[in-house]
């Protein structure tokens, strides 16, 4: 009576929901805190896909096999197809525009030159100079 099917289903649903929420929060923290556009995309592109997939799988388990769960299964399949594709498209567009990846050395040079730890990374084009192909690379980043 204690471990009937309903209890097992609900426990599995809550566990998958919590794991999915953890992945989504981790992706959001990485999206806010990472220093570069590409690393922000690295955080969100995988964590959000996995978190949403886990939460929707949890809702399928909760709902049982009905017509609604087939709809959510289509939704999961579309998200697993579309989310990496859109991430790849954004990254390729940024690389074609000429946005350069962030390097640790540039940041340290900026810190030594300006004297304060400005991690927002908006005004280091005039300081470092070499290695930038765009004229306003610091602004776009």
């Amino acid at each position: 009576m204690m471990f009937d099917t309903t209890t097992i289903t609900n426990v599995l649903t809550v566990m998958l929901l919590l794991i999915g929420a953890f992945f989504m929060l981790a992706g959001t923290i990485g999206f806010v805190r990472f220093p570069d556009f590409y690393s922000r995309m690295h955080a969100t592109g995988k964590c959000d896909t996995l978190g949403e997939g886990l939460m929707l799988v949890a809702l399928i388990i909760y709902g049982g096999v009905t017509f609604v769960s087939v709809k959510i299964l289509f939704l999961i399949a579309f998200i697993l197809l579309a989310n990496p594709t859109s991430t790849h498209a954004i990254a390729k567009a940024a690389y074609d525009v000429g946005l350069e990846p962030w390097r640790k050395l540039d940041e340290e040079v900026v810190w030594l030159n300006t004297g304060n730890g400005d991690t927002d990374n908006t005004d280091n084009t005039s300081n470092t100079g070499e290695g930038r192909t765009m004229e306003d690379g610091g602004e776009v980043r």
């Binding site: 989504m24 999206f31 959000d48 859109s86 525009v97 602004e139 776009v140 980043r141």
Partner: peptide, 17 residues
């Protein structure tokens, strides 16, 4: 976030949430 690409990916992330 600086630049257009951060805003595009922010819209994408909020939409998928």
């Amino acid at each position: 976030g600086p630049g257009i690409f951060n805003r595009i990916i922010a819209v994408n992330v909020i939409g998928t949430k």
